[in-house]
Amino acid sequence: MTLTPDFLDGNAAAGDLESLFGTDMTMASGRCRGCGEQTMLAQTHAYLGGPGMVLRCPGCDSVLLRLVRSPTQMWLDAGGLDYVKIPTPA
């Protein structure tokens, strides 16, 4: 099976993630639970046009994070990440 690229870089999701986490997420990083690769947000593959936002690992294509917004709620699944590391101001 071969794959064709049809994604944006993860910075396209930075605005949505900032509204969720309340801080700039462009320097955030995390580790894929599927393959163990450490990745910056900008390196992830973002699928944004569908019912929700999906960030995938650039190494193994596993889902790292999903975000769905309804008019009244947000759902977050970050189960594909071992952790998220967010730099804080000194």
């Binding site: 099976m1 071969t2 794959l3 049809d6 593959h45 699928y47 046009g49 999906v54």
Partner: peptide
């Protein structure tokens, strides 16, 4: 006919 996907488009071989 908008194309919306939650992941990469798989190229599925008809033999498989």
């Amino acid at each position: 006919f908008p194309v919306l996907s939650a992941g990469p488009t798989p190229a599925v071989d008809l033999d498989q």
